[in-house]
Amino acid sequence: MNLPPFVLHQPLTIDEAVATFAQHPGEADWLAGGTDLLPNYKWRLNAKPHVISLHRVEGLRDLTPTHIGAMVTLRELEGSAELQARLPVIPATARQVASVLLRASGTLGGNLMLENRCFYFNQSEHWRRSWEPCMKAEGDRCHVVPQQELCYATFSSDMAGTLCALDATAQLLGPQAGREVPLQELYLFDGIRRHARTPGELLIGVRLPECAPTWRTGYRKLRLRGSWDFPELGVAISIQIVDGALSRLRIVLNALEQAPRSLDSVTKPYVGGPLSDQAIEELAAASFERARPYRNTSFPPHYRRKMVPVFVRDLLRHLRDS
């Protein structure tokens, strides 16, 4: 399969990158490791005539426990001794993404901005022509939830689950200004729009709270094979227990819907109380209730949903007892 023709831009600074993008409104894409963008381009999925590579851009490769640049590769996250010592959940999550080869190219920024996925979307042109393209590609209806106007393509980034659970903040820079938003708020439950971000806004990196290393945070991923399968459910949980009581509890369900979902209304009543076996069972059951997978990945949705309480229970117990 060959790539569609496009103009490749290779800016050297962040400002130049943002300015270049601004010159091609609606006609450009950012390129980081390319492990997500280029396969989609080969399938002619919303390919643009201008591609702006971030490879030569300086200032996107910071790697500390409080700040990670967008161009840090997943392999670098995996191998970082500092993260391993202070926030081991980040290397542990990175290690579960895709495969070694893909992680060598794949970046954190690309992972967080990953295109959403769906059985009816991630297919070749020939396939889409013989079925009927959906509205996320060149068509006008959805094959997953036909009655709806919304796209339910699944957001399948592993890192996003963990970083949302860690209360990460996204740093964005647009042609007019820069801003910081909680990562969780960046995502939209809309498989086509996906982000509360203008396309020309560049993700510079993520900031992590100073106190994050004092929390206990974990990530569980559901996939059929031990390598390169996208998550079909990701559960990220971050807790802190002070004097036998939960001072913090965040449960993020990932890779079920169009965006990671933080179960704050479910977890809120438990903050301040003990993480008893009963609390764990209740949280597992409540998570199951909130889980809404769609039929557009490999495992059937009922199974992915059934695994939610299993993962939540296991992970909560593990974090509590570790």
Binding site: Q123, R225, G226, D229, F230, S298
Partner: peptide, 18 residues
């Protein structure tokens, strides 16, 4: 009748992990 998984990502051949 439409083949849903005509790719090595979606057709699940075991990896060395399995």
């Amino acid at each position: 009748g439409q083949l849903l998984n005509p790719s090595l990502l979606d057709y699940k051949i075991p990896t060395p992990f399995e």
